[in-house]
Amino acid sequence: MSIWVDENTKLVVQGITGREGAFHAGRNKAYGTHVVAGVTPGKQGQDVDGIPVFNTVRDAVDETGANTAMVFVPPRFATDAVYEALDSGVDLVVCITEGIPAHDMMRAYTHLKRSGQRLVGPNCPGIISPGKATVGIMPTQVFQPGRVGLVSRSGTLTYQISKELELVGIGQSTVVGIGGDPVVGTSFIDCLEAFEADPDTDLVVMVGEIGGNEEEKAAEYIAANMKTPVVGYIAGFQAPPGKQMGHAGAIITGSSGTAQAKKEALEAKGVAVGTNPTEVAQLVKERVG
């Protein structure tokens, strides 16, 4: 098994006629994901790489039975696209867009918690269940099918850690990029809970970074609820306070959100934390190899 994305995924891509949308829709399809529809208002009737384009997500869902939406819409229009996807009734929305204002996401998050659907992102690379399906922008060649779950706030760092895992012969059940924004739809805890329930995930690698307290909350959750072992990594020990380190959410505010605090919180709950991506792979190998 795997979580959230697999051979049953039927994907509609919002913003499919844009450069990025078209490129990645084609790549996801080439990997084997059932990309059943695209949406760009005013372009119904066209197709992108054989994928039919609709004016609205609702039409796309009605016509094709899409159950997952991926948002490739510029920040100014992205929150609307997320609401449109949620309102059309899909189970999962993956929002790739970077640069959505925090206020928009606060409102969308509040709505999401009432609707009970799942949003992954924004500002994320997506989800891949290697060998089954990919929804997003991840370079699929760095992932191999396997039994380790991986959840991360960062894109390239996820690829690096997957590469390190490959070097020690370990593949992944599912890899989730939850996104680098301060407000994201899916938290570490949501992913840990899903991996814990997945019989085909033997261990979870959790890749955190500075800012917020989601890693600390995850540490509590792991201690209280998980039998599946977890290995951690935290980026940003050298980050100065008050500076945004690339991701909108990667910022130490006052004395909170430091890498040291997160590492200590995880270690206090018995989670091994690697000091670099290579060591993370070794820690995983020792536990499941």
């Binding site: 390239t156 680098g180 050298q238």
Partner: peptide, 24 residues
Amino acid sequence: GNGAGLVMSTLDVVALAGGRPANF
């Protein structure tokens, strides 16, 4: 570097190697 997470990780690895990063 490329990607915020990887760059942060790079700074940390430079520090672990006994150096001091000049920037992100």
